[in-house]
Simulated scan of single mutants.
Amino acid sequence: MTLDHEHELPGAAAWSAPVRAGRTVTLTALADGANATMLIIGADRLDRLNIPDTLKSQMSARIKPGMVLMSDRGLALATVTASSLDWHDCLTGALPDQLLLLELTKHGFGEADLHACINFFSKVSVADDPRASLTYVPDHGHAGDTVTLRADQDLLIFVSTAPHALSDGRAASVAVRLETPDHSEDHTGGHTGDPAPDPELREEAIRALRLTRELIA
């Protein structure tokens, strides 16, 4: 199954699709309190989203516009080109349920491939306790909030709309819409359409993009 222009993912559901390099994917929250947990794997199955390297190289503890999502090999998987929110959680991981695992098995993956992920539309903060533990921030995302990613190489994306793992029942399962523009196929290695312009990026992100473009040229 491919991501074909628009797909509405109900609450408490999961879905997966290939996305070709150069395509953009926009996620839209369809109600307050949405959470869209996303795993990203390169279509060649060599590159997996590496949250620690993504954060360390770009001096951030959150996913926000202008960040490149990097793989284990330091390559660019996708770039966050726009977002109505300046904070998307990537420290907590996925709710321990079977939604994402079921989608992974459709592509020949297993439980060992359930790696670190991004919780779009969700935010965590440091709690005021002796352990300085993470706590879920309610009322962060609202209906109509959006985030747009550009695929910097051919990808497999996996999305779950289960509540955030730390919400403790404070968040319901909310539907999310996924959209890609309708591009015509070009003749540059099979990519589709013109890539979205890069936002202002750190040097480490620019290097990851350059290496990736050289690899897939």
Results as ranks from 00 to 15, higher is better:
Leu215Pro: 09
Ala127Pro: 14
Phe121His: 06
Asp152Lys: 03
Val174Gln: 11
Asp182Glu: 05
Thr161Pro: 01
Ala116Gln: 13
Thr26Gln: 14
Leu69Pro: 00
Ala13Gly: 05
Asp113Gln: 09
Val174Glu: 12
Trp87Ala: 10
Leu155Val: 04
Thr135Cys: 14
Arg48Glu: 02
Gly22Asn: 05
Glu214Val: 09
Arg207Thr: 07
Arg210Phe: 01
Ala29Phe: 00
Asp139Ser: 07
Ser16Val: 07
Ala165Asn: 11
Leu85His: 02
Glu103Lys: 03
Pro130Met: 07
Arg73Thr: 02
Glu185Arg: 13
Ala12Thr: 07
Glu8Ile: 12
Gly74Ala: 02
Leu30Phe: 04
Leu95Ala: 06
His183Gly: 02
Ser71Phe: 00
Leu101Met: 10
His187Cys: 06
Pro197Gly: 06
Leu55Lys: 02
Ile63Thr: 06
Lys56Val: 04
Gly189Lys: 12
Phe109Ala: 00
Gly42Trp: 00
His5Cys: 15
Gly169Trp: 15
Val174Arg: 09
Glu203Cys: 12
Arg207Ala: 04
Lys106Trp: 01
Cys117Thr: 14
Ala13Phe: 03
Lys123Phe: 15
Val137Gln: 07
Ser184Asn: 08
Thr79Val: 15
Leu3Trp: 02
Met67Leu: 14
Gly193Ser: 13
Arg45Ala: 01
Val80Thr: 15
Pro65Glu: 09
Thr26Tyr: 11
Leu100Asn: 07
Asp44Tyr: 03
Pro195Tyr: 07
Leu46Cys: 08
Gly169Asn: 15
